[in-house]
């Protein structure tokens, strides 16, 4: 009896599961059932989770944000139909690789900004106007968006940017030139600023 049950409940090798999963991702995508597709890539600032809705890239998450928790958040805020389906992220992955390889200065990706609202979304929409290798202070960004006194709110908008790296909140510093905060940690912010300064 143990033999039989042992064989029937033996581990299924990971390659079989990977093959079945890839087929599921492909078929689910072609039937329009993947509300949030995601993948994870290595980068000089650690492993980045990239997630996209059919509308565009919706989330970039640093490892220190805990990818499992980020996926749970996406499931509750967008849809529980979250699947590891790398194909939808192919362009985003390529552009991010190019960015870290100093081959790309601006991102040319459809974005889905539905995770932020109101003033935060307004700020995040303006952040790409800060050019590669340049920096602005929180105060200057407040002026840029036409609310010169909303310096703190700009800080919050940067801190809650759902698309770090791609939407360049790392280019916003304190007025005295010190780093301020960063969702991916100060080391990551320094790495990005050095990368762009060296180019």
């Amino acid at each position: 009896m143990n033999d039989i049950l042992g064989v029937l409940s033996a581990p299924v090798d990971p390659e079989t599961m990977a093959r079945l999963h890839a087929r599921l991702a492909r078929e689910a995508e072609s039937e329009g059932l993947v509300d949030v597709a995601y993948t994870v890539v290595d980068s000089p600032v650690g492993r980045l989770l990239l997630a996209a809705t059919p509308k565009g890239l919706v989330r970039v998450a640093y490892q220190n944000e805990d990818h499992d928790r980020v996926l749970e958040m996406l499931a509750s805020k967008i849809s529980p139909r979250v699947l590891h389906a790398p194909r939808r992220l192919e362009t985003a992955v390529r552009e991010i690789d190019e960015y870290f390889g100093r081959l790309r200065r601006t991102f040319d990706l459809p974005l889905d900004l539905s995770l932020s609202h109101g003033f935060r979304q307004l700020v995040q929409k303006h952040l790409p106007e800060i050019g590669y290798g340049q920096t602005l202070s929180y105060r200057q960004v407040a002026e840029l968006v036409g609310s010169p006194r909303a310096v703190r709110a700009v800080g919050t908008a940067c801190a809650t940017n759902p698309l770090p790296v791609v939407v360049p909140c790392h280019r916003v510093l304190r007025t005295d030139g010190s780093l301020g905060g960063y969702i991916g940690g100060l080391d990551a912010k320094t790495t990005l600023l050095n990368l762009e300064a060296a180019a």
């Binding site: 599961m17 999963h21 996926l71 499931a75 529980p80 979250v82 590891h84």
Partner: peptide, 23 residues
């Protein structure tokens, strides 16, 4: 709170495959 579907596949994929094989 509902888990991301990916978690469902990861957690139950092997069991479902065994069930399919048995049937």
């Amino acid at each position: 709170m509902k888990q991301p579907f990916e978690k469902v596949v990861a957690r139950h994929g092997v069991t479902v495959l065994r069930v399919c094989r048995a049937l």
